[in-house]
Amino acid sequence: MKKFFFLFAFIMTAVAVQAQYYYDRSKNPDRNVKKTDNLTGRDFDQYFFLSWNYSQSLSNPNYINTPSPLGLKLGFRKRLNDVDRLWAGGDVSYNVYRQYYPYQTYTSGTQSTSTDLYNYTYSYSVTANIDYFFLPQDKMIVPYASVGLGVAANKFARYYNIYDGASTAWGVQIRPEAGLLVGFAKNAAWRMKAGVYYGYASSKSTTYGFNSFLNMGFQVGVVKMAW
């Protein structure tokens, strides 16, 4: 019985060690490890990011012409080829632009209206993206160029006293972007993302007389590399 117990304990320990061995994916013998894994053994083929957007509305300056720090973008990318350059994925983002107009009188025909008012533009977009990285992902600084194509929803709203009016316009979103992924070590799992972008949305609001929505801005965010 004692021999059986020791044999059983030995087998279980061996299985546990083996399981732990395979649980560490970097040591998995079935895994096709690329040359980029020399330093850490991690072959990242996807990443997620959350970035903060600071942007300026370029269209309809009589409506809103002040820059906005209210913006976020969530994104995901998956590597498309083995040379680490072409990645594809999607972004979900929003920007909110707002401007206060002090109390003044607006006259149209025989009617005059005095009020102060707040103009808002809520800009939402969902895009499919293609990124091209100019260096392999195991470098500390990796520059990239990207383009996103998708759907935009722009809600133009005005608030004054207890009243509000809004118009939502849908359109095609095109957003070229360029930037850097910066790791704190080579082939780092966590990185910083910084980039500039230009956005065009064909959102047309007949209510407000807007034909499109353009914006430009920069983003800073956190990237989590994964495999």
Binding site: Q111, T113, Y120, Y124, N161, I162
Partner: peptide, 19 residues
């Protein structure tokens, strides 16, 4: 993603319409 103006700020002044 959809902030609005502060309610207190909105009612600091009244809307005055004349015709």
């Amino acid at each position: 993603c959809q902030p609005k103006p502060n309610a207190g700020d909105l009612v600091k002044n009244m809307v005055v319409v004349t015709d």
